[in-house]
Design a protein around this nucleic acid. Sequence first.
DNA 1: CGATTCTTTTAACATAAGATAAATAATCAA
DNA 2: TTGATTATTTATCTTATGTTAAAAGAATCG
Lengths: 187, 187
Amino acid sequence: MQQLFQYFKKFNTVPPEAEAAIASICAIVNLEKNEELQPIGHTCKTIYFINKGLARIYYYKDGIDITESFAFENSIIARVESLFTGKPSRKAIQVLEPTEVVAINAGQLFKLYDRFPEIERLFRKIFEAAYVETVNRIEGMQFHTAEERYRALLNEAPNILMRVPLKYVASYLGITQVSLSRIRSQR
Amino acid sequence: MQQLFQYFKKFNTVPPEAEAAIASICAIVNLEKNEELQPIGHTCKTIYFINKGLARIYYYKDGIDITESFAFENSIIARVESLFTGKPSRKAIQVLEPTEVVAINAGQLFKLYDRFPEIERLFRKIFEAAYVETVNRIEGMQFHTAEERYRALLNEAPNILMRVPLKYVASYLGITQVSLSRIRSQR
DNA sequence: CGATTCTTTTAACATAAGATAAATAATCAA
DNA sequence: TTGATTATTTATCTTATGTTAAAAGAATCG
């Protein structure tokens, strides 16, 4: 849990009582490689923090598995399009390595917002940062060739390419696995 | 200003004093067609609400004008990647019709967050909703052909195609103007 | 109104990426 | 270790989209 509170400090400091309140609505969960953290069709009611390991959000389009995003240790992962709307998610969260997460009960967390404005502010800032990342990703997807997107990933997040099966990376980049392989092979 | 407060009600109700506080940091701005609301290179310190008219966020990639997003009446527009990081934005906001906006001073707004938790909550929810929209847009961009993206736009936001020059729509869809024209011509 | 400028379409050609199938390579379980 | 499964690469062919240039069509303004 210390790891999570360390992470929080990057966004907002909260008083000890607030930390204790958060701790009381968290649970440590351990998963084996490839296990599902959240299934498709379920409304997202949990925010996860990754202590160790790696996860992805994915969904199916026309029967094809598409990776929306990856998350590594010391980061938050949640299906926000469900979390913030209360609608069921067409997406799932899956772990790609043996992974330990802190599961934060979102319903109870949102209740804590009333008691602790610092907690509301903390998560506001966390999701603002995530929002910015998403906006930046759109920019990367507009008018870049598949090769440019691959090279950018190689630069900015080589850990993804080291730890994630290429088939997942391909759909994350918005291309087929065959295309990705072709791009990699040309030197 | 009433229009803005009406919009707010969709997200969170705030007490009259809070409304008054917000009103005190807002200004009405009127712009002519094609005028710039915010220039490239400037750090974003204003959140705009569109009373009437239409605006877009755009930037240049290799000298080519690319539209990141559009905003119509009764919606918020801001360059969040600058607003939330304090870094200068490579993007600009331009109005595409005679437009009236409410300019909200973001620095002062963030100060109001301390005095009025309701205001912090209000804008938290506004940006959460915007975040969800952005995540959904990524989904639309992964593994859809240009034609599918055009048809989807035609369905979901035909007003964009009615009111926005096609050259801007093309880059928004991530394709060239020539491609868009080709897609439109085939019945 | 006519001239200029801006926007959209059309045409011809080049190329990146998709689809399908098959061959390797890597991983994993018995 | 071996066989079976899964992941990755390679090959061939097809197609969507980019590029460039030019023509046609609208909008704007003096």
